[in-house]
């Protein structure tokens, strides 16, 4: 039979075990809309702007992940979108995932903002490659507005730059994401 003393010790033990968890905050995306954009340039002045709004943020306390479902991206041209999805093989690899060690990220204090560069790993088209990305973060009452930028050479991930009617976009694409997360 558990005595009061045993109960007290059990509660103390559980609390002690939980304390690190409570101390280790995690990034959680707020309900504010997210923005995903990419820009691909081509010959003769062509510029393809892609956009989406689906993005999820994961945090297990040591690693932060940003996942974008590639099917959600659009260039406002149905045929071009289809070619993009074929090039990315989205039926086979539906998501792209950026994985960053939490320790490599800087978090601004409340009312502060910062700009930084961090290393990460980008999973895209079935291939994971190390990347560097830059980000701006602004903490407004615990809500951290984050804007990240990253150049992607799609050929490094085994993607052939989409081509249409003898015009192919450049292999280098600039990706921008913006979302709001709380460090809870």
């Amino acid at each position: 039979m558990m005595t009061f003393s045993h109960l007290t010790r059990f509660v103390f033990l559980v609390s002690a075990l939980c304390l690190p968890c409570l101390a280790d905050a995690k990034l959680v995306r707020t309900t504010d809309p997210a923005k995903v954009e990419f820009v691909a340039l081509g010959p003769l002045g062509i510029q393809v702007n892609g956009h989406g709004s689906e993005l999820s943020v994961g945090d297990d306390g040591t690693t932060v992940t940003v996942t974008i479902p590639l099917q959600s991206l659009s260039t406002d041209n149905g045929l071009r979108d289809r070619h993009m999805r074929e090039a990315l093989e989205t039926s086979k690899y539906p998501n792209t995932v950026l994985t960053v060690a939490r320790g490599d990220l800087k978090f601004p204090a409340d009312g502060q903002s910062l700009s930084a560069t961090a290393p990460g790993n980008l999973f895209l088209h079935g291939v994971t490659k190390p990347v560097q990305f830059t980000y701006d973060a602004q903490n407004a009452g615990g809500a951290i507005q984050t804007k990240g930028r990253m150049p992607v050479d799609m050929t490094l991930w085994g993607i052939t730059p989409p081509s249409y009617a003898k015009i192919a976009v450049d292999r280098n694409v600039t990706v921008n994401v913006a979302f709001v997360a709380a460090d809870r």
């Binding site: 081509g42 510029q47 393809v48 003898k166 015009i167």
Partner: peptide
């Protein structure tokens, strides 16, 4: 008006400033 990609003319026309003969694109 389309897609934000067609401000210029050169991708669609042999004349880089527009008009007449079309490229395949």
């Amino acid at each position: 008006r389309h897609d934000g990609a067609y401000v210029g003319c050169a991708m669609c026309h042999a004349d880089p400033s527009g008009g007449a003969l079309l490229t395949q694109y």
